[in-house]
Design a protein around this nucleic acid. Structure first.
Lengths: 214, 214
DNA sequence: CTCCAATCGCAACTCGTGTTGCGTTAGCCT
DNA sequence: AGGCTAACGCAACACGAGTTGCGATTGGAG
């Protein structure tokens, strides 16, 4: 997608990656074969095989392409609202069989291929950073203790949902999302997620919030 | 394993399931083929194919067999110590390539087969129930608010670790385990994990802890 | 405009997984 | 102990994913 309109190579690459997404949504990871992807992309299967050794590398490449796609972080006015919105979006995605097929395939592929594992790591790192904006905002608004690890709070918010979905196989709903967000928030408010030592006065990188209290 | 010494069928079944575990540890999910399992079990491959249609069903059956194996919940004297011990065990398991192969295979198999998904769900439900004992103890000792959802506290303790391991691909260590346990505990102590309504006096199913305070 | 290198399409092939039919063996029941 | 049924071993086969060699096409450079 970087050089979308370009030489034949770029055109073929884009067509194949698009076809991969489409096949993934339609048939899931299991039904994903190189032949089907090639057929949908209007390309011969050898072309696909020559460029991507396995399906997992194909998924990894497709994920890389979509990583830099903009993802708008919610802005409800409060951290609590924002975190619940983030958690709710996860619930919504996994409630739709078509949409949940993509992350499921990514997780599966990452368990098979180191390259896919790397792509997945990069993808979630980017997403976490984008989502962490709501936390950084909250710290500036004194809603949360200064020095709160923004990404860690995002992790704690999402983790219980993914845990249920991928590990225990338990259902998730709006109540689950709300509970996860509130629990994570409780830890943050208790000062358990501070990056720098919280036991005493330190040379903090930013004491603006504290200073403003005086 | 239920009727270990029995007819030929039971013997073959046990041999195959044992071989499945051994192959899983040695070669991982990817290297797991029916032929290898059959060879190690001293059985012909058609015998395996006739009983278990796919590898995933084989893994599911092996998981079922190991579900009722006793798992000793830690008892350090405090909930915090117990939860950290539980979290630490997860870190330890996934630090060992051989031991992490099993849960990884289970998660992969569950994404492929409904039968494996069910086996995984049952397994974690049993584990959660066993681990929840430390929480129930803590509630009785008044370390935690009465009505605290024991299993939910266990979920919140484990979730951030599994999230890093399976989803984001970030590393886990003792510090991660400790932080997860403490964060979950903060939510529980804040009364966010109560099963019954916490906003006022209710007809609670069990007010023993409250009664004892008088 | 022409040539050249890279890439693609095509068909035939290899190889491993999973299947099938049949003969054989083991365990249980009277 | 003898027979009966269910399960197993074996070999041959079917099928599809992935590979390979070669000719054809594309897009850019001089």
């Amino acid at each position: 997608m970087t050089t979308r309109p370009g030489g034949r190579s770029a055109r073929v690459r884009a067509a194949v990656l698009d076809a991969t997404y489409a096949e993934l949504v339609e048939r899931g990871y299991l039904g994903l074969t190189v032949e089907n992807v090639a057929a949908r992309a209007g390309v011969h299967k050898t072309t696909v095989y020559r460029r991507w050794a396995t399906i997992d590398l194909l998924i990894a490449d497709a994920l890389d392409s979509s990583r830099d796609t903009g993802w708008p972080a919610p802005d409800t006015g409060s951290v609590e609202g924002d975190l619940i919105a983030i958690a709710d979006e996860i619930v919504t995605v996994f409630a739709d069989p078509a949409r949940r097929a993509v992350p499921e395939a990514v997780v599966t592929a990452a368990l098979h291929s180191g390259r896919a594992r790397q792509a997945k790591r990069d993808f979630y790192a980017a997403r976490h950073d984008q989502a962490a904006a709501v936390v950084r905002r909250a710290v500036q608004r004194d809603e949360l203790p200064p020095g709160t690890d923004a990404v860690e709070l995002i992790r704690l918010t999402c983790a219980p949902l993914y845990y249920r979905i991928f590990i225990t196989g338990e259902p998730v709903d709006h109540a689950t999302a709300e509970r996860s967000a509130r629990a994570a928030l409780a830890a943050a408010r208790a000062g358990l997620l501070r990056t720098w030592d919280a036991t005493g006065p330190v040379s903090s990188p930013s004491r603006t919030a504290v200073d403003r209290l005086r």
